[in-house]
Simulated scan of single mutants.
Amino acid sequence: MDSPLRKIIHIDMDAFYASVEQRDDPGLRGRPIAVGGGGPRGVVATCSYEARKFGVRSAMPGARARRLCPDLIFVKPRFEVYRAVSGQVRAIFSHFTDIIQPLSLDEAYLDVTVNKPGIASATEVAQEIRRMIREETGLTASAGVSYNKLIAKLASDQNKPDGICVVRPGEGGAFIAAMPVRRIHGVGPVTARRMQELGIETGADLRARDLPFLQAHFGSAAEFYYRAARGEDSRPVHERQERKSVSVEDTFFDDLVEAEALVAELDRIAVNLWTRIEKAQAWGRTVVLKIKFADFRIITRSRSFSAPVRSPDLLAQAGRELLLAQLPLRMGARLLGLGVHNLESEEEDGQDGQLALSL
């Protein structure tokens, strides 16, 4: 390791939006619910654990969610309530440290190497944070405690819901080794499939490949994968900087040429992007399309509106129009991306968004 060890906690609220709705409406407790839209273009922002048993997941189209779980109850999001609860949770964080990096309304990294109460154990800090969240909000949170951000985030998902996982210095490599590579934060679905083709199924398989091998197959991302397989991550916890844009992109296993396939993929990307926009409450005035061709040439096209885009239908329509204007493509597309730029700040429009040493 070429960086000093830190004490990092990743806190992730359990099924945040859905848990708030079940807390506030006793009639929803113990029932499969989804927060979001259940219509033809609706998207599941998050769902209760009762719904997850049926295979319902965040970013899933509402129509598909209903097919998987016919008794699913859709609840309209109440972002003003989620923001208020998120504010309560962040106030709890600030009792322990000022080095906080929110990722969304429902999760954040905390650096507690040196913390305000002077507690030596990061595990004790995490337990105290979870206790305070339960007492003050009536909700549960899961925590990952480790010596870097990568492992802390993976650990917070290990014992959900309402759990804690501690990975101490010297344990990171073994923790990663037993994990499917698709779970490693930073390994997307396309990369995971490529790794599978190379016989890389687990963190242990990834660690067995040397850096030149990874560079030959994964280019500039190779060093990250090499270090991740060894439980290494030198990134510090940063206070959140002003968000400039929100985007989603996907690399395809086979290059796409046909208009129907391109539009279908872009519609799917727009659904995922809208989920991110709602979660971050990051409303933007400019919709940007990105296309990477088979020869790795990249073009971007954009359309700006007089007001922030606050409709998933308008977002998808703008993306389709930008794409259709480029058809037919002169060669296949290996990647499509869609994003919103020129975001309005919280102050401008009054909106925000969902969300080892001695450890």
Rank of each mutant, 00 (worst) to 15 (best):
R240Q: 10
A204C: 07
T202I: 08
H217R: 07
Q241S: 04
E242K: 09
E201H: 08
E239T: 13
A192E: 12
G199C: 00
A204L: 11
L214S: 00
M195W: 03
R194P: 07
A222Q: 00
A216P: 11
S247V: 05
E223G: 09
E223S: 04
S234R: 13
I200M: 06
H238P: 07
A222S: 08
F224W: 15
I200Q: 15
Y226H: 15
R193K: 15
H217I: 11
E232M: 13
H238M: 08
G203C: 13
D233C: 09
V190G: 00
E201S: 04
G188Y: 02
V248M: 14
T191R: 05
G188S: 13
A208Q: 09
M195Q: 11
S245I: 06
A221D: 03
L214Q: 12
P189R: 04
V248W: 12
Y226R: 10
A208T: 01
H217Q: 07
D233S: 00
Y225C: 04
P212W: 01
M195D: 04
G186P: 11
E232N: 01
R240C: 03
T191V: 13
A228D: 07
G186D: 13
S234C: 12
T202F: 05
F218A: 06
H238I: 07
T202H: 02
G219D: 10
A222I: 01
Q241L: 10
I200S: 02
F213V: 04
H217C: 05
L214C: 06
V190F: 07
A216M: 14
T191G: 06
G188A: 12
R240A: 12
F218I: 10
K244P: 01
A228C: 14
G203N: 03
S245L: 06
V190P: 03
R209S: 06
G203P: 14
A228F: 06
G231I: 00
G199Q: 13
D233F: 08
Y226N: 03
A229K: 00
L211I: 09
A221H: 11
P212D: 04
D205E: 06
V246P: 12
A222E: 00
P189Y: 00
S245P: 04
A216T: 02
H217D: 09
R230T: 01
A208F: 02
K244S: 05
F218D: 08
R243H: 01
V248N: 13
K244Y: 10
A204S: 12
Q196R: 14
R243M: 14
H185Q: 13
R227Q: 12
L214H: 06
V248S: 02
R227A: 09
R193F: 11
F218Y: 10
L198E: 02
G231W: 06
Q215I: 08
L211N: 07
T202V: 01
R240M: 07
S220D: 14
G186M: 03
E232H: 05
R230D: 03
M195T: 04
E223D: 09
A216L: 02
